[in-house]
Computed example of a mutant assay.
Amino acid sequence: MLPLALVLAFLLTPVLEIYVIIQVGQVIGGWPTVALLLAESLIGGWIVRREGRRAWRALTATFQRGDVPDRELADGALILVGGVLLLTPGFVTDVFGFLFVLPFTRPLVRRLLTRYAARRVRVAGARAGVFPPGLGDLGFGAPQAQPRPGGPVVRGEVVHDEDAPPTARS
């Protein structure tokens, strides 16, 4: 299902962007539309640069404290994706880019994506029978005992005889 959604998104996004650009151009004119697209890209690039530096400082500070940088890595990834969306010409991708990059909307997007990822992990684990249901936030539990291969189990002890001469191999 997800690959089909990605293919449709990559095919329909340019069509939607062109449609929105044409509609905005009809309302405000051609040159103002081009100027607005350029201004959005410049402002977006400046915000990405500022937030990227801030995220880098937070990431290095977290490493220096010895903590796990889960939030900082998620913020860095969102800033990276938001920067790509902001530099892509179009109004629709700019809206999503600003949602990913702006410091007051990024935590909301991070929480939504974290919940979505946790739900996908639970569903995939339940479908595969890997994780016991209901254990942990993401469905992770204690490791299951590995199934034994068929046949009898012979208990014994390994004895290393260091004094024995090496046997000739044929």
Rank of each mutant, 00 (worst) to 15 (best):
Y116V: 10
A142G: 02
L112N: 09
G76W: 05
L112I: 14
Q144V: 15
G125S: 05
V95Q: 02
R122P: 00
P103S: 06
A77Q: 09
L87G: 10
P152H: 10
A77C: 11
R122D: 01
G90F: 08
V130I: 15
R119I: 05
F104M: 02
R111V: 11
A142M: 01
G125M: 05
L80G: 15
L138K: 01
A77P: 08
G76E: 06
R127G: 00
L80T: 15
G156M: 01
A118I: 14
G76I: 04
P152M: 12
A126H: 00
L99A: 08
A142T: 01
T88D: 15
R148M: 05
P143Y: 13
F104D: 04
V101C: 08
P133A: 03
G139M: 09
F100S: 03
R155F: 14
A128C: 11
T105E: 09
L78C: 12
A118G: 08
F96A: 13
F140T: 14
R155Q: 12
L113E: 04
V158G: 05
G76F: 08
G82M: 02
A77W: 11
G156V: 00
P143M: 12
D75W: 01
P152D: 07
A145D: 15
A145G: 12
T114N: 06
G125V: 06
P89F: 10
Q144L: 14
P152V: 14
R111W: 14
V95I: 14
G141F: 13
R148W: 07
G150Q: 08
P152L: 13
G151R: 07
D94G: 15
T93A: 07
V158N: 02
L135D: 06
R127Y: 05
A118W: 12
T88K: 09
Q144P: 04
R115A: 14
P152S: 13
R155Y: 14
R120I: 10
Y116P: 00
P149W: 08
G76H: 08
A145H: 13
V123G: 01
F131W: 08
Y116M: 13
P132L: 09
R148L: 10
A117H: 15
